[in-house]
Design a protein around this nucleic acid. Structure first.
Length: 574
RNA sequence: CGGGGCGUAGCGCAGUCUGGUAGCGCACCACACUGGGGGUGUGGUGGUCGUAGGUUCAAAUCCUGCCGUCCCGACCA
C-alpha cells in the first residue's frame, strides 16, 4: 500500500476530550473520529485493525465448530416481551416504532433473536449441540459513554449462542469456548486473565470474564499469587478470618465524638486503627408482604473494609438493587443520624460481615448522635442477626481457593462467557424432541467478545511516548518503508518500489511512505505513532554500501542490513 | 439523574472579567530555500464565535432559555 493512496490522518496534538491513552492515540493515529457521544467513525487505518481482530475471532470460532450467522440490529418488541426483558431492560434499550406503530428496539444483544431462530429451525436432539455466532453491531444507550471505543454506545461484538440437550453438553461446549477465548486473546497478543464473574443482566449460572490487565480498566480483578484463581472483585469471596484472640474487655465505654462522623475521623479521634472500628450501613430490605413499606436492614463491616453491593443485594433479606436508606428514614425509625449508628440494640435485622464478627473490642456507633462506644464485643453489648460475606476482598487477603494471597489489579473486560441454562429457551418455548420422543427445553450458553473494545485494550497495553506499538497479529501494516529524498534519487525510489512489490507479493501488509517531498522526521513520527512493528529506511548513503536501515518498533536502535537479504530477514521477523 | 467544566477554522488555544474591525500555533494551498527525527521564509485558503431570544447605537463579550460535549458522583455511618 502506498501512503498517497491511503488516508494517513495523523495529528500532532491530542484532542482535549480524550482521557485515556488508547482514545488519545486512536484519534492521533487517525484510526477513529467521533461522530457524536459514544458514536465513532472508523477510518481506513482503524478499520484495518478491526478487521484483523475479527478475522482471528472468526477463525478460532470456526475451528471450534461454531457456525456464523447474521441477525438484524433492529428487533421486534414481541420477542423481548416473550423473554420478559422488554420490561426488565431499562433506558439502555433504545425503543422506537415503525410507520405501522409496531414497537422495535435496537439490539443490545441477541439472545431473543437467536432463540427464536433456533426454536424454528432445530427440532431434534440429533441436531444438538449447536453453536451459532455473529459479528454484529450492537447499540446500548450507556448512561455514560466514555474512553472512546472502550465504552461506546454503538460497538461491534462477536456474540455466540450454543444450544444443548442437557447440562453436560453445555458444560462441554462452555469449556471449548473457554479454551477458544484463550486462544483468541493469545493470538491477538494480549496479556489477559480469565476470571470468575457475575452473570449480570444477561442471567444464568456459571460465567467467566476475560480481562485485559490495564490501569485504565473499569473493573477490579482479584487473583491469587500462587494459583490460577482469578475473580471479578464483585464475586471474589472474602474468607472468614480466625476469631480475634484478644481478651474481651468486659466493660465498654461510651465516648463523646461530637464532630467525628466518618470512620477515619472516629479512628483518629480514638487514636485507634480503622480495622478496630465497625461501620453500620442502613439499606432497604425485602418486603415481607405486599402492603408494608420496605424494612430497614443494617449491614455491619469492619471500618477498613468496603461493602460489596453485589454480594449484599443477593442476600434474601436485602432488596435488589441495593438502595441506601434515606437520612430522614434512619432518623425517624432509629432516632440517630448517619455517623453514629452501631450494632447495639438495633431494632432491625442486622447482618454482619465475617470479618466484623471476628473483631474484638471494637469501636462502633452508640446509636446516639455524637457518641461512639469503645471496647464493644459481640459477646457483651453488640448483636447481629446473621453472618454473611458482604465485603470486597482486599490486597493481601487469603485466596478463597486456599492457595496464596489475593492481588487486585484493574482489568478491561474484553470477553464474557455464560452458561445461560434455560432462561430464554424456557420463556420462549425453544424445545426439541429428546431421544425418547419427549419435548425438551434446550439449555443455552452465550459467548461475547467486544471486538471494538479489543482494539482499544490492545493499545492500552502496548504504547509508549511515540505512540502505539501493535502486537504483530493485529497491526494495520507489518512493515513501513521510509524513503529518504525519493524525489531526488532514482536508486532510492526504485529500491523502495521493488521492496514494496516483493513484500506485497509475499502477502505482507506493507506501507510505503511515497509522498514525494515528505520530511523524514514527520514520516518517522507517523510510522511510530501508527505503531507499525517493522520499519526500514532507504537512503542513498546506505545504498552506496548495499545496506538498508531496519528498526523494530520496540528496538532501542536501528541496524544496517544487507539490501539483498532484507526481504528474507523481514519475512523471518514477521 | 445530581454536581461541575467547556463550546471561537480540521486540531490545540487566546480574546469574554472591563461590549467597539475575530486572533495565534499546528494542519492545509502556492513559491523558494532546505534535506537522516515533526526544518525555514514569503504569500494565501478556511470561522453565521453551539443555538434561539433579550439588553444596547454596537454583543464572541452582558442577561435568559435551549442544545451539544467532557469530567466527577451511586462507600455516608
Amino acid at each position: 500500500m502506498r501512503a498517497t493512496q491511503f488516508l494517513i490522518a495523523t495529528q500532532k496534538e491530542t484532542p482535549s476530550d480524550a482521557v485515556v491513552i488508547s482514545h488519545q492515540l486512536m484519534l492521533r493515529a487517525g484510526m477513529i473520529r467521533k461522530l457524536s457521544s459514544g458514536l465513532y467513525c472508523w477510518l481506513p487505518l482503524g478499520l484495518k485493525v478491526l478487521r484483523k481482530v475479527e478475522a482471528i475471532v472468526r477463525d478460532e470460532m470456526n475451528k471450534a465448530g461454531a457456525q456464523e450467522v447474521l441477525m438484524p440490529i433492529v428487533q421486534p418488541a414481541e420477542l423481548w416481551e416473550e423473554s420478559g426483558r422488554w420490561e426488565q431492560y431499562g433506558a439502555e434499550l433504545t425503543r422506537f416504532n415503525d410507520r405501522h406503530t409496531n414497537s422495535f428496539c435496537l439490539g443490545p444483544t441477541h439472545e431473543e433473536v437467536i432463540t427464536d431462530l433456533v426454536r424454528n429451525e432445530l427440532k431434534s436432539y440429533k441436531q444438538l449441540p449447536a453453536n451459532f455466532y455473529q459479528v454484529q453491531t450492537k447499540f446500548r444507550d450507556e448512561v455514560r459513554p466514555r474512553f472512546g471505543v472502550m465504552r461506546s454506545r454503538e460497538f461491534i461484538m462477536k456474540d455466540g449462542y450454543s444450544f444443548h440437550i442437557d447440562q453436560d453438553s453445555l458444560q462441554a461446549t462452555y469449556d471449548v469456548m473457554h479454551e477458544t477465548y484463550c486462544a483468541i486473546f493469545n493470538r491477538i497478543g494480549l496479556n489477559f486473565r480469565p476470571v470468575e464473574a457475575d452473570t449480570g443482566s444477561i442471567g444464568g449460572s456459571a460465567s467467566h470474564e476475560f480481562h485485559v490487565l490495564a490501569e485504565s480498566g473499569e473493573d477490579d480483578i482479584a487473583f491469587s499469587d500462587s494459583s490460577d484463581f482469578a475473580a471479578n472483585i464483585e464475586m471474589a469471596e472474602a474468607l472468614a478470618p480466625a476469631q480475634s484472640d484478644e481478651a474481651i474487655i468486659g466493660t465498654s465505654k461510651t465516648i463523646a465524638t461530637p464532630s467525628q462522623k466518618t470512620i477515619e475521623e472516629v479512628a483518629a479521634f480514638c487514636d485507634s486503627p480503622t480495622d478496630k472500628t465497625l461501620k453500620t450501613l442502613i439499606v432497604l430490605g425485602e418486603k415481607n408482604d405486599e402492603s408494608e413499606e420496605q424494612p430497614l436492614v443494617a449491614l455491619v463491616v469492619r471500618g477498613d473494609h468496603t461493602l460489596n453491593e453485589l454480594k449484599a443485594e443477593k442476600l434474601p433479606e436485602i432488596s435488589s438493587p441495593l438502595t441506601f436508606a434515606s437520612e430522614e428514614r434512619i432518623q425517624k425509625e432509629l432516632g440517630v443520624s448517619i455517623g453514629s449508628i452501631g450494632p447495639i440494640n438495633l431494632p432491625i435485622t442486622t447482618i454482619a460481615d465475617r470479618s466484623a464478627v471476628a473483631a474484638r473490642n471494637f469501636i462502633c456507633g452508640a446509636n446516639q448522635d455524637g457518641f461512639h462506644i469503645q471496647n464493644s464485643n459481640w459477646e457483651t453489648n453488640a448483636q447481629f442477626s446473621s453472618i454473611a460475606d458482604i465485603r470486597n476482598v482486599e490486597n493481601g487477603d487469603p485466596s478463597p481457593c486456599g492457595n496464596g494471597q489475593l492481588h487486585i489489579k484493574r482489568g478491561i473486560e474484553v470477553g464474557h462467557i455464560f452458561q445461560l441454562g434455560d432462561k430464554y429457551s424456557k420463556a420462549m418455548g425453544a424445545t426439541v424432541l429428546s431421544e425418547n420422543g419427549k419435548e425438551t427445553v434446550m439449555t443455552m450458553g452465550c459467548y461475547g467478545i467486544g471486538i471494538t473494545r479489543v482494539v482499544a485494550a490492545a493499545i492500552e497495553q502496548n504504547n509508549d511516548d511515540a505512540g502505539i506499538i501493535w502486537p504483530s497479529a493485529i497491526a494495520p501494516f507489518q512493515v513501513a518503508i521510509v524513503p529518504i529524498n525519493m524525489h531526488k534519487s532514482d536508486a532510492v525510489a526504485d529500491t523502495c518500489q521493488a521492496l514494496h512489490d516483493q513484500l506485497s507479493a509475499a502477502g505482507v501488509d506493507v506501507l510505503m511512505l511515497d509522498e514525494p517531498k515528505a520530511r523524514l522526521g514527520s514520516m518517522l513520527a507517523d510510522v511510530e505513532l501508527i505503531g507499525i512493528p517493522h520499519r526500514i529506511v532507504v537512503g542513498d548513503r546506505g545504498l552506496a554500501n548495499n545496506e538498508i536501515e531496519y528498526k523494530g518498533r520496540r528496538d532501542e536502535d536501528s541496524q544496517m542490513l544487507n539490501k539483498d537479504e532484507i526481504v528474507d530477514l523481514l519475512m523471518q521477523k514477521i
